[in-house]
Amino acid sequence: MSIYSLYVINKSGGLIYNRPGMLNDRRRSGHSLHAIASQLSPVPGCTGIELLEADTFNLHCFQARAGSGGTLTGTKFLLVVDPHASFIPTLLQRIYELYSDYVLKNPFYETEQVIKCELFDENVELLIRRYTQQAT
């Protein structure tokens, strides 16, 4: 049960955070896939891809909302995990809480810019380590 990587994407599709730090331009296409998927959806009110299951990994997506049930802010949290991992939506929710505490409340952080907050890094690291320990 391992967590492979975490990406945060801003509303214009730019990568603003990635762990463990491998960068690949293709990863940005996740944003447009989202938009096309919601356009092609046979049901109204679709907000995009929530979970992508592949043979070797699962990609979970969490979209930040303004208030509970409010409009989407466009910030997306992508988590690439082992196909057998469980409780990922809860983990993503916790990561979002860390984001709001250590990134959004940081007075030196400008919205939509690359996240460089030590406290956020540390706490995400801690959370993921605790999760992997609990799971095994």
Binding site: Y4, S5, N24, R26, R27, S29, G30, S32, L33, L52, A54, T56, F57, L59, V80
Partner: peptide
């Protein structure tokens, strides 16, 4: 695109 995307995202 999804299949290409998956190939690039694939950790293994």
């Amino acid at each position: 695109t999804l299949s290409n995307f998956c190939a690039t995202m694939d950790p293994k």
